[in-house]
Amino acid sequence: MLHSFIPPARFFPYLTWQDIAKMPNKQNVVIIQPIGAIEQHGLHLPIIVDSAISVAVLGKALSKLDVDIPAYALPNIYYGKSNEHWHFPGTITLTSQTLISLLMEVGESIYRAGFRKLVFMNSHGGQPQILELVARDLHIKYNDFCIFPLFTWRVPNIAKELLTPKELELGIHAGDAETSLMLAILPEQVKMTDAVTEYPQNLPTDSVLSMEGKLPFAWATKDLSQSGVIGDPTTATKEKGDRIWESLANGWVQTIKDIYKFQQPKTTN
């Protein structure tokens, strides 16, 4: 079905224009735009990983959400800015400028329909900065528009409790966490017999610089990995994936509740 993991009653495209026009309390209705990518994820995972995670986590969260809280999912944006992976066949990437334009125009359409709370729910690690730029620009353009540029994995969840210290530090792509989650979401598309472990070599040592973090350096995946994996997927299990999926969904339930109650801070005269 077109709604995939999203509960049909929470799928924005299933509404009519009259449903939208007559919707009460529209300024507090939470509209969520899931965003993923179509990019390589090693030898064992399909290129749909980030997009699948967005839709699956959001769908489970919306199925748990109190029916009295109005929240709707837009159709997933499958393509993202993935040029760090384009040396691997199958990766499809937008430019930064294209993604910025797309998200700006989606946001403006949502605002024009009368909504005032929009979440960008992003599952691809290569584009959070773009969402933050768009969110700021939309809010500057429309002062009463509340925009939330959020990363799927940053809500409260238990993933860190299930990973080794090395995987926590270096397992940033197609490693244990993503593979475990995909074993829960789309197990028939995971080829565990092809899973390989590969961590980056020759990273700066005794240095404040790192791949990601406060002082990062720019990189392409081919600089760090021959297989496309950055991490250890061989330790992944469906049991871990089920637990991660459940905890991410719970984290998103709380996040959506907080957004529903959120009021933009304002100075007082």
Results as ranks from 00 to 15, higher is better:
222 K>R: 14
195 A>H: 05
229 V>P: 09
215 L>R: 02
183 L>M: 15
204 P>F: 01
152 T>P: 12
189 Q>W: 04
194 D>S: 01
234 T>D: 07
153 W>N: 15
154 R>I: 03
180 S>C: 15
210 S>I: 01
183 L>N: 14
156 P>S: 10
154 R>W: 07
225 S>I: 00
220 A>N: 12
172 I>W: 03
210 S>Q: 13
162 L>D: 10
241 G>F: 01
151 F>S: 13
171 G>W: 00
190 V>D: 05
243 R>A: 15
244 I>M: 15
218 A>M: 13
211 M>L: 15
238 K>N: 15
168 L>R: 13
237 T>L: 03
152 T>K: 14
202 N>Q: 05
166 K>H: 13
195 A>F: 08
178 E>V: 05
178 E>P: 10
212 E>V: 03
209 L>D: 02
197 T>Y: 00
163 L>M: 11
166 K>Y: 12
189 Q>V: 07
232 D>T: 06
205 T>F: 00
226 Q>E: 12
189 Q>H: 06
178 E>S: 00
161 E>I: 10
207 S>G: 03
213 G>N: 03
169 E>N: 14
243 R>W: 09
191 K>Y: 00
231 G>P: 07
233 P>E: 08
225 S>M: 05
156 P>M: 12
232 D>M: 01
215 L>P: 01
174 A>T: 09
174 A>W: 04
233 P>G: 06
171 G>M: 02
157 N>H: 12
232 D>W: 08
195 A>Q: 06
217 F>Y: 10
169 E>D: 15
170 L>W: 11
234 T>V: 04
232 D>S: 02
194 D>R: 03
164 T>A: 13
208 V>I: 04
196 V>Y: 02
218 A>C: 11
213 G>S: 06
221 T>R: 09
238 K>E: 15
163 L>P: 03
224 L>F: 02
176 D>G: 01
182 M>H: 10
186 L>V: 10
200 P>I: 06
242 D>C: 14
165 P>N: 12
247 S>V: 12
